[in-house]
């Protein structure tokens, strides 16, 4: 479990690729403030996988994840002058990424289709994946397909809680909902996922 950070900052998983090093970050920030392309490239290299993967989990759409990542980095470069440095650069970037994802969902038209409609479409994808079961069962592709099929509200809470490791109180603040709502959304999300994924898990465990 990640340790909670102070204040109202959400606890942040460190970027998986590369370590967030305060000294290195300070140099990047200084360069980006001057608009130096080299520093921008370096900052991008440092954080691209992290930002992209958060966006990818939140949207589960390659193109949308790319669009969101582009927005995030442009906003980083345009707003870095107002970054006061009282929080880690990674926290600042993280919050920006999540906020842009959230805005993205707000703009997205409410998804009317019930989850089962989408699940039938991803189901085909799922079974073809099972053909490689001799090489060992890999739940990841099925899980990704199932997350993608979740309604946006469930998906955000699931990603923030079960992938990014936030607490309900933090999610409630980020999404401006009550923690009770966060909790019930998470439970519904997990139930949908389990309903969809259980057959795959069972097939695997009887092989």
């Amino acid at each position: 479990m990640p340790t909670p950070t102070s204040g109202d900052l959400p606890q942040v998983k460190k970027p998986k690729s590369g370590v967030s090093d305060p000294v290195k970050d300070a140099a990047l920030i200084a360069g980006c403030r001057k608009g130096e392309r080299r520093a921008q490239v370096a900052l991008y290299q440092q954080y691209k996988d992290w930002v992209f993967n958060i966006a990818l989990r939140m949207t589960n759409q390659q193109q949308e994840a790319e669009d969101i990542s582009q927005k995030v980095f442009l906003q980083i470069f345009r707003k870095i002058a107002s970054f006061r440095g009282d929080a880690a650069l990674s926290s600042w970037i993280y919050r920006m990424t999540v906020n842009i994802c959230i805005n993205h969902f707000r703009k997205e038209k409410k998804r009317k289709e019930h989850i089962s409609n989408e699940l039938s479409a991803v189901g085909e994808q799922g079974t073809s994946g099972l053909q490689s079961r001799n090489e060992g069962f890999n739940l990841a592709p099925h899980l990704k397909a199932a997350i993608r099929a979740l309604p946006a509200g469930y998906r955000m809470v699931f990603v923030l809680h079960d992938i990014e490791g936030h607490k309900h109180e933090e999610i409630a603040r980020m999404l401006k909902i009550s923690s009770g709502t966060s909790k019930s959304q998470l439970h519904k999300a997990r139930k949908e996922l389990r309903t969809y994924l259980e057959p795959f898990i069972e097939i695997h465990s009887t092989l």
Partner: peptide, 22 residues
């Protein structure tokens, strides 16, 4: 099942954005 799903969720493989992103 739920345990497996949660374990998988917290360790989904990291994906790399395409070069065209930069």
């Amino acid at each position: 099942s739920l345990e497996q799903i949660l374990a998988q969720a917290s360790s989904l493989p990291t994906e790399t954005p395409p070069n065209s992103l930069w």
